[in-house]
Amino acid sequence: METFLVLASTLCISMGVFLGITGAIGIFRMPNFFARLHAASVTDSGCAFMLLFGLMLQSGFTLATIKLCFILLFFLISSPTAAHALAKTALSCGAQPTSSPREER
């Protein structure tokens, strides 16, 4: 059981790290604003979720787990909202979500 938990949490944390790194690369490499926003929100929600979940597995049934749970809930609500607000503002400022290649920065 112990080894299983450690293994699972390691898997989750490395998954989170992977998502974080790909998200960071995406912010630099993606062609336009909305694609970059997608990369950023993957880091925001996916990476944070996996990291926190991995940490929760490691800390067991303690107060720390409950605190992590709250942080997780907070992230699950706040990061999609932030991405939504950004996208909406960009739309109202005239940015078009196209699949065209590199737009002017």
Binding site: F74, I77, S78, T81, H84, A85, K88, S92
Partner: peptide
């Protein structure tokens, strides 16, 4: 005022 989602989420968060 236009940002409905933002308004609701912020209303939820401020007490927290």
């Amino acid at each position: 005022g236009k940002h409905l989602v933002l308004r609701i989420v912020i209303k939820m968060f401020i007490p927290l």
